[in-house]
């Protein structure tokens, strides 16, 4: 047993597939009732990490402790305290929604009565009551994912792993999924989720760990990460013959310029007041601004900042892992 107030503790996790090093020493801690988002591009090792933490895969080195139990030495105890929802809705197509939930409840070793009651509760909460007696084959993508998540909640596990919970969902289903996750956190569930979207990590997570080439390159709260990456940027397109004048006028405020497309970016807090100030300044100097836009820092910015390459760079690795 591991005595610490972190529900998930990961220590020096390594894993290779043949010659390909997928994880090269992952260290993580997630406190009870909080969300950690594992952020990274395809092939960074997110899914491999989740697979090891949910006992599907044995690490080559290191260990992880879930609710005090080692994934290497006590996989059965770990399995009893986790729920796993993967990237694909892993539910039984030929059974109804209700049958799926009851089956999962019984496999989690609930009594038949408890499995039934919990099943009904979840069907209601996940808005699947009307579809309860239909086979899953007839469900939409969003409904399947909701059922999938409901299935991993049936035994109220204290720890939940969500592997890209909203990938492939339409915006409405995505919002619904976010709502559910927020409620789970309020109910003191500890969640580790993976995502490729900075926006999603920002929305849901207490802390964000950025994964690249099998290691955590930076970890912190959303605000800490943003502070490191830089603030929002105001991007202005200036009329061609005013461009030089604009650069001179903005002076030290300029963070990026692109003379070819006569673009100039300046750091901004993104408030209306800020933007108004900049535009008025341009107006007063009779500089014509053709268009403007505000950019939030993206996953790409995080990657550029910490790895010197964009988030797309890991594509090849992913193909290898899936082979």
């Amino acid at each position: 047993m591991d005595q610490s107030n972190s529900t998930i503790k990961v220590r020096g996790l390594t894993k290779s597939f043949k010659d390909l090093k997928v994880l090269t020493g992952i260290e993580l801690e997630v406190k009870r009732g909080t969300v950690l988002a594992l952020l990274g591009p395809n092939g960074a090792g997110k899914t491999t990490t989740i697979r090891i933490l949910s006992t599907l895969l044995r690490p080559d080195g290191g260990d992880a402790f879930i609710d005090g139990h080692s994934v290497v030495k006590e996989p059965d105890k770990v399995r009893a305290s986790i729920g796993l929802t993967g990237q694909y809705a892993a539910v039984d197509e030929y059974l109804t929604g209700r049958e799926n939930l009851e089956m999962m409840g019984r496999l989690y070793h609930l009594s038949r009565a408890d499995a039934k009651i919990r099943g009904e509760e979840l069907l209601e909460q996940f808005d699947l009551e009307k579809a309860a007696t239909r086979t899953v084959k007839t469900y939409s993508g969003g409904m399947r994912r909701r059922l999938d998540l409901a299935a991993s909640l049936i035994a109220t596990p204290p720890v939940l792993f969500l592997d890209e919970p909203t990938t492939g969902l339409d915006p409405r289903s995505r919002l619904a999924m976010w709502g559910i996750i927020e409620q789970l956190v309020e109910a003191d569930v500890t969640i580790l989720l993976t995502t490729q979207q900075l926006e999603e990590a920002d929305m849901l997570a207490d802390r964000i760990a950025v994964l690249d080439h099998g290691r955590i390159i930076v970890e912190g709260t959303s605000d800490e990460l943003k502070a490191k990456v830089g603030k929002e940027r105001l991007e202005l397109t200036i009329r061609k013959d005013n461009y030089e004048k604009a650069i001179q006028l903005l002076g030290g405020e300029v963070v990026q310029k692109d003379p070819q497309r006569h673009l100039v970016s300046i750091a901004t807090s993104g408030t209306v007041h800020e933007i108004k100030r900049v535009l008025e300044k341009m107006e007063a100097a009779t500089i014509e601004v053709e268009s403007m836009s505000v950019h939030k820092p993206t996953l790409d910015d995080v990657f550029l900042q910490f790895t010197g390459h964009g988030a797309e760079a890991n594509q090849n690795t992913e193909e290898l892992t899936n082979a």
Binding site: A80, R106, L107, Y108, H109, L110, S111, D114, I117, R118, E121, E124, Q125, F126, D127, L153, A155, T156, A176, G179, I180, Q183, L184, A187, D188, V189
Partner: peptide
């Protein structure tokens, strides 16, 4: 989406012998 009642109905796995669970799971 309705409110999740995660904690209000805390269900527990039952305690039985591993042979019992083998038969149950099968």
């Amino acid at each position: 989406m309705k409110i999740l009642t995660y904690k209000t109905r805390q269900v527990k796995a039952q305690e039985h012998s591993s042979f019992y669970w083998l038969i149950n799971d099968l």
